[in-house]
Design a protein around this nucleic acid. Sequence first.
DNA 1: GACGAATTGGACAAGAGTGTCCAAAAGTCA
DNA 2: TGACTTTTGGACACTCTTGTCCAATTCGTC
Lengths: 208, 208
Amino acid sequence: MQRGNYNKRCAIISAATAVFVRDGYVGASIDAIAEEASVSRQTIYNQIGDKEKLFVEVVRGINEQGSARLIAVLATFPDEPEDIGRELVEFAIRLTRDCLCDENSRALRKLIENEGSRYPELFETWKDYGPGKNWPAISARFARLARAGDIDLDDPDLAARQFMALIRADLPNEPGQMVSDAELAQAARNGVRTFLRAYGKREAALAL
Amino acid sequence: MQRGNYNKRCAIISAATAVFVRDGYVGASIDAIAEEASVSRQTIYNQIGDKEKLFVEVVRGINEQGSARLIAVLATFPDEPEDIGRELVEFAIRLTRDCLCDENSRALRKLIENEGSRYPELFETWKDYGPGKNWPAISARFARLARAGDIDLDDPDLAARQFMALIRADLPNEPGQMVSDAELAQAARNGVRTFLRAYGKREAALAL
DNA sequence: GACGAATTGGACAAGAGTGTCCAAAAGTCA
DNA sequence: TGACTTTTGGACACTCTTGTCCAATTCGTC
């Protein structure tokens, strides 16, 4: 009773994610989702309920996924770097690849931006579980680097925001376009170099 | 024959802009636009044609407006700065206030992001007239500053992208939320300070 | 094979939206 | 005033979507 249920349910949620992301809330039709999931429309109503419940489920799913990935990446922050430039670049690559460029994360941002005003509750979920939640964690890591003397900054929160902005600055951000590993690496290197020119020892930046 | 036409036409485009921005392409109904414009639905069909033509018209309008504003702001770039820090901050404030935070520009970005895939032609218009078109102009200004010895950089294009990213990094970017002048100024100052720490003489950054 | 639960597909009502048609009303200009 | 154009509002056909109902079928399990 659980097994079959569960498989269908996953297929539905997965298909719904794709369709909502592609067409937005209003543009997505239950029929399209049913077809994408290779499931009859009725099954969707049996399993989940109405369109809104389905949407909430989709957003929560992406949210949890993204949050988990972000936490995993944060765990790889170079707390005691030997070569701070290289290690920050590698961290930046992981961050952009797994958490920023990732198709679902971008989709989530888009969905939130578009439907957030219609479903304020989603906004709350996003604030609690979404990427924003973990920025303080990044700030704390930078603050620790500063205390250890690896970098020189006064406002870790600001530095964290700027770090994110810099490693994003050079990413091609056309919607739905794939970003190659080489582009990713180049963007990370450019961002980190400028970050270190501003906050690091000059040698570290020049070494990049 | 032109007079009455023209007024109605403007009212329609203006109302359509508001509704498309608020509800997206699919969510916007002709009836809602007609009501917002205080015009009968039939008049819209008489004046413009179908929904798609209306949408194209709206996007082109916002595009032209935004592009004009950006060019105007670019003309105020501090080419021969006395106090580079202060003048860059003031430039950054104008840029964010008039071109980035502006309600219509944000809306345009959103519309392009959502409907761009459906109307590739809009994407082209946006590339030709949109903000991206004028980035080379910013790069050129930074290159000139570098030649004059005011700042120290090797890749003006990259510097321009990072400048934009840095002055954006600290802007509150909740959709539809108003940004106060104080927040704007603070964000600009933070961004420019880091930019100058990386690319300028250290004194200029510290003076901020 | 047989039972019970889940799934399917088709039909259905209700609602909303688009685009067209048309006759009546309002506005414009000489 | 009179001729001409534009606007209006209502009616209409058509399509699409949502959500419900139901009988037939399939699936899992014993």
